[in-house]
Simulated assay, not measured.
Amino acid sequence: MNIEATLKGAMAIEGAIGVALVDYESGMALGTLGGGNGLDLEVAAAANTEVVRAKARALSMLAIDDSIEDILITLGTQYHLIRLLGGGGSLFLYLALDRGRANLALARHVLKQVEGELQI
């Protein structure tokens, strides 16, 4: 599955507002889909890069020898899910969901499936 198909797969999740594939070394989005009013995915990609970097620093400072799978940020009306991609690379999927329509457990499950099919 290529980047476009991966983004479309993520946007098929019930309640999806927008998705981005992000390189957290540069903070740049490799691809985006959705977003729009109130959700600039390019800005979100850069901002969430800082979230990933901060959590990685925290793990290092705490001497926790483990890797990050997901980072979940809950807002009053949205979920923001950051899924780091396996394989030792520097990519993550960022998915914004409408909290009233989304099933968080299902979204995490589908995002993991989509990740497994991504080929770059």
Rank of each mutant, 00 (worst) to 15 (best):
A5D: 14
I64C: 09
G89H: 06
L85F: 04
G88S: 09
L104Q: 02
F92R: 02
E14V: 12
I64G: 06
A16W: 01
G116H: 06
N103K: 15
V110C: 03
L7W: 00
I17N: 02
L104G: 00
G100C: 06
K112M: 11
R108E: 12
T6V: 12
G76E: 13
L75C: 14
K8V: 10
D40F: 02
T49F: 08
N37S: 13
N103C: 13
N2R: 08
V22L: 04
Y79V: 06
D70S: 05
A107Q: 02
G36V: 12
L85G: 07
S67Y: 07
Y79C: 03
A46M: 11
I13V: 13
T6P: 04
A29G: 04
R53A: 15
L111N: 02
D65N: 14
T6L: 13
L75T: 15
A47E: 12
R108G: 02
K55I: 08
A12W: 04
L62M: 15
L104T: 03
H109R: 14
V22Q: 04
A105D: 13
A29L: 00
L62E: 08
M11A: 09
A58F: 02
E115A: 15
I120Q: 07
D70V: 05
L21Y: 01
Q78A: 14
L118C: 10
L91V: 09
M61F: 10
L41G: 00
T74N: 09
L111M: 14
A46E: 07
G36S: 10
E25P: 03
Q119P: 04
L95G: 00
D70A: 04
L39H: 05
L97F: 01
L62T: 10
L59R: 13
I64S: 09
G38W: 01
A105I: 12
I17F: 03
T6F: 06
L111R: 04
A45P: 02
Y24Q: 08
G35M: 02
E14S: 15
L39F: 15
K8T: 14
V43K: 14
E42L: 11
L62Q: 10
G27W: 06
R83C: 09
A63I: 04
L7G: 04
E50H: 10
M11G: 05
N48C: 07
A56E: 13
E42Y: 04
G116Y: 01
G36A: 11
L30Y: 09
L93D: 00
K55V: 11
E4L: 12
I82Q: 00
G87F: 04
L84D: 03
A10C: 12
L75S: 14
N48F: 02
L59Q: 13
L30I: 07
A12R: 10
A102W: 00
N2S: 13
I68P: 05
L41M: 15
L21I: 10
A20P: 00
I13Y: 03
N2W: 08
E4A: 15
G76T: 11
D98K: 02
A105R: 12
T74D: 08
L118G: 02
I73P: 01
L39I: 13
G18C: 06
N2T: 11
S60A: 14
G27A: 06
E14L: 11
N103I: 10
L91S: 08
M1R: 08
V19Q: 01
L39V: 13
A96I: 05
R53I: 15
